[in-house]
Design a binder for these strands. Structure first.
Length: 825
RNA sequence: GCGGAUGUGGCGGAAUUGGCAGACGCACCAGACUUAGGAUCUGGCGAGUAACAUCGUGGAGGUUCGAGUCCUCUCAUCCGCACCA
């Protein structure tokens, strides 16, 4: 009678049934509440890794749970398919990136389907397909139309290994985020999206995201880096030029003893022209420009500078202060020039000490010396202004406002807000990406490709080896075109777009993926968006998650979307580790999902990965742990098989009348488990504790099965609950067992069980009796006793009697339903 | 340096509101069944003790009848940011 747990056959069978019956296909259905559940779509590297398995297993529990709870669940999957790795792999393996990518997609799709995730596969998309990137280009055009896409020449990050420029966000500690090569600075003309135009909204709306981890919001806040201060101009002695600076400490303006320009500052050349030290300064500037950013911005980097020979006039007191050039001032923040107040800024302090520049205290505080010479470090704290003429005695905070007001009144400067966030550089000098839909006409200049001419197709027949500019520049059939305006011969933009552009709107496309004239329909996004639950790795905390937010706000502004934030709730899952380290080929500690699924089945793999750790935390892979999960599923398999035929015809009554103690206990466990599992999934995503509760129910059922007299309706109720509760985690085995128990309709279509509060009422409970906080006895009492009664019963316990006989009771604390604490001396 | 998170048995991890520390699982030990066991079942499993007492949530203090949980200080690990004026 024991049927073997043949997971291979079972999993294949149910994956087919789900697909054939389109159980996970969804439409906009206004009669049901919608739930858009999304996992970050993968880059098609060719093989799933354990991080993917974890990501999609988590997502599938949420999707199946919500669906069983009556939600209309959108759960799509697609491919982030453009990008450098495809191109690099293609070069290495001498296959075309397209072929390589589509081959990978095919394989990963097969693997993903083998996991049994409840995707609506009809919505599958790949960003490298013309029917998708047509609209990535459309997005570009819309941004261009709204003056949010522009071209400018500036110093940009250049990765010599990837042979392309990178956005700021893609440079980590001066190195390429992808290949870790050191990034150079190059002066290039490139396309940017004006993310800075949305800086304030991107910052403010973080407040509207209570469902996001604080950590991610903090990272975004830091990245946006808002600061309040003021910008003002200084005259330069003997020159027509003025110098503009930005400071967050206008209250210290009377403490300025020198000014600093960034080496790249345009004024440098004009100031030093014809001066005696011109050559020396030019040499210094050249040296600074050639120093890499990492070396220049490292914390312990020595401050270096040189005096220009020029002087600026402090507009507040008419003082003449020397203008220096120094490595510690960056061209691309603020105005690229600062007022230096060595007494109250550590960097200026260090510089002033090194070059013997005076240090003047203008903020008085008991925490710091009153004389510059006596200071050991700059004082940046609170205090009152001194040496500041009419502003003396004013606090730091008040002083900032008053100085700004004064400057505005006297037309010296004005209050300004500055952001660390830069515009998003989206040009890439590589082949495998969406072409930027722009044409350069000798007469009309920069001309956008008309919408009707989209997509600008990425040609396939091309030598795509990188050589420092886009390979498309070599292909005449691509770049040679006519101006959409005047019809004259013109040249296409050959750069492609950063892949993060493609992934900034894919969640919108999933809502109506088959539209061919518009990126997505209003009805669809209005119904589905925003994503209710987004799940993925924390490595996208800034990059993808900020770009996607930027796109969403833009699309909202042009009335394409009705929401301003794309992701209501965000879950950032932890990494999968082996032997305490991230799985990687170089460490040789990679566990292949395909092997695990082949040996134990997808149900086991999913169960283990969800059981081993709560989702946000890192997960330590354990082969033995997998065995354990496999054993558990086998136990469930055997037990339910034993009962399957017996309980087939049993009816579960609406009211359980007379139950013996053991049956009552099992019923209690059944309903307590329903309650716990529901709450663990719904409220806290604590799948690990949900699974342990299911295991407890299984254990209780197992113990009960030893009873000679068994109450079958109670057993059936318990088995039903067990299978329903387990089904989001390990769906295939639950479907099979559900069917074996005589149920005709698939388990994934069932309603999630609800608990019966009556079953949770117990006649008796155990109460802990403490003496002075230490547990001394446990007593079983009827539920619902009054405090006084409880106290008397506790005191009457023989054990307690004995222990307190020569003591005086000082007081007694009663916590109804839990404990009695007798404080005795 | 700044900001954040974490620290609990041999291991992964529970403890939801200040109320029985160690749920559940792994590993391990013993037993049953068995020709056999790396299957399955039963039992044990923080330290300590003959048994109790007792000790025990990184460490030191504190609040409380009672602290893994609250407060102060401190250590360690991990992550993020880091000349942003």
């Amino acid at each position: 009678m024991d049927r073997r747990y043949d997971f291979k056959a079972i999993e294949a069978k149910w994956q087919n049934i789900w697909e054939e019956n389109s159980y996970f296909k969804v439409y906009e259905d206004k009669t049901k509440p919608k739930y858009y559940n999304l996992e970050m779509f993968p880059y098609p590297s060719g093989h799933l890794h354990m991080g993917h398995v974890r990501n999609y297993a988590i997502g599938d529990v949420v999707a199946r749970f919500k669906s069983m709870n009556g939600y209309n669940v959108l759960h799509p999957m697609g491919w982030d398919a453009f990008g450098l790795p495809a191109e690099n792999a293609a070069i290495q393996n001498k296959v075309h990136p397209a072929r390589w990518t589509y081959g990978n997609i095919e394989n990963m799709e097969r693997q993903l389907k083998g996991m049994g995730i409840s995707y609506d596969w009809d919505r599958e998309l790949a960003t490298c397909k013309p029917d998708y990137y047509k609209f990535t280009q459309w997005m570009f055009l819309k941004l261009f139309e709204n003056n949010l896409a522009y071209k400018k020449k500036s110093a940009v990050n250049w990765c010599p290994s990837c042979q392309t420029v990178l956005a700021n966000e893609q440079v980590v500690e001066g190195c390429c985020e992808r290949c870790e090569s050191e990034v150079d600075k190059k002066q290039l003309e490139q396309w940017f999206f004006k993310t800075t135009a949305y800086a304030q909204r991107l910052l403010d709306d973080l407040e509207k995201l209570p469902g996001w981890p604080e950590k991610v919001k903090t990272m975004q806040r830091n990245w946006i880096g808002r600061s309040e201060g003021c910008q003002f101009s200084l005259e330069i002695e003997g020159s027509e030029e003025t110098l503009s600076v930005y400071t967050t400490r206008p209250d210290t303006v009377f403490g300025v003893t020198y000014m600093v320009l960034a080496p790249e500052h345009p004024l440098v050349e004009k100031l030093v022209a014809g001066k005696a030290q011109e050559a020396k300064i030019q040499a210094f500037v050249k040296k600074m420009k050639s120093t890499s950013d990492i070396a220049r911005t490292a914390t312990d980097a020595e401050k270096e500078g040189i005096f220009t020979g020029a002087y600026a006039i402090n507009p507040m007191n008419g003082e003449k202060v020397p203008i220096w050039i120094a490595n510690y001032v960056l061209m691309d923040y603020g105005t690229g020039a600062i007022m230096a107040v060595p007494a109250h800024d550590q960097r200026d302090f260090e510089f002033a000490r090194k070059y013997d520049i005076p240090i003047r205290v203008v903020i008085k505080s008991p925490d710091s010396p009153a004389k510059g010479e006596e200071m050991l470090e700059a004082y940046a704290g609170d205090g009152v202004m001194v040496n500041s003429v009419e502003f003396d005695g004013i606090t730091v905070e008040e002083g900032q406002k008053r100085i700004i007001a004064y400057m505005e009144e006297h037309k010296i400067g004005q209050g300004t807000i500055n952001y660390r966030l830069r515009d998003w550089l989206i040009s890439r000098q590589r082949y495998w990406g969406a072409p930027i839909p722009i044409v350069y006409c000798p007469d009309c200049g920069i001309v956008p490709v008309p919408e009707k001419d989209l997509p600008v197709l990425l040609p396939e027949d091309i030598d795509f080896k990188p050589y420092g500019e886009s390979p498309l520049n070599q292909l005449e059939s691509f770049y040679k075109t006519t101006c959409p305006n005047c019809g004259k011969e013109a040249r296409r933009e050959a750069d492609t777009m950063d892949t993060f552009v493609c992934s900034s709107w894919y969640f919108d496309r999933f809502c109506s993926p088959h539209e061919s004239d518009i990126p997505f329909s209003w009805e669809a996004v209005d119904y589905w968006m925003p994503v209710d639950q987004y799940i993925g790795g924390v490595e996208h905390a800034i990059l993808h998650l900020m770009y996607a937010r930027f796109f969403t706000k833009f699309l909202y502004d042009i009335n394409m979307l009705s929401c301003e934030e794309p992701f209501t709730n965000l879950l950032t899952q932890g990494m999968v580790l082996k032997e305490g380290a991230k799985m990687s080929k170089s460490k040789g500690n990679v566990v292949s999902p395909e092997d695990i699924i082949g040996t134990y089945g997808a149900d086991t793999a999913r169960l283990f990965i969800l059981f081993a750790s709560p989702p946000e935390r890192d997960l330590e892979w354990s082969d033995q742990g997998v065995e354990g999960s496999y054993r558990f599923l086998n136990r469930v398999w055997r037990m339910v098989n034993e009962y399957a035929d017996i309980i087939k015809e049993v009816n579960i009554p609406d009211n359980f009348a007379q139950l013996d103690a053991d049956a009552c206990k099992l019923r209690f466990k059944t309903h307590a488990s329903i309650k716990k599992v529901s709450e663990d999934i719904e409220e806290r995503f604590n799948f690990n504790t949900a699974i342990s509760a299911i295991m407890e129910l299984s254990n209780a059922l197992n113990s009960y099965s030893d009873n000679e007299e068994q109450d079958l309706p109670v057993v059936k109720e318990a088995i039903n609950a067990l299978l329903l509760l387990l089904s989001p985690f390990s769906p295939h085995i639950c479907e099979e067992l559900w069917q074996l128990c005589g149920n005709e309709e698939a388990i994934c279509l069932q309603k999630w069980p609800t608990y019966d509060p009556d079953a949770l009422i117990q006649d008796e409970i155990e109460i802990v009796v403490q003496i002075s906080g230490k547990v001394r006895d446990r007593i079983t009492v009827a539920t619902g006793l009054a405090e006084e009664e409880l106290k008397q019963i506790a005191l009457a316990s023989p054990k307690i009697q004995q222990l307190i006989q020569d003591k005086t009771i000082v007081k007694t604390i009663v916590v109804p339903g839990k404990l009695v604490n007798i404080v005795a001396r």
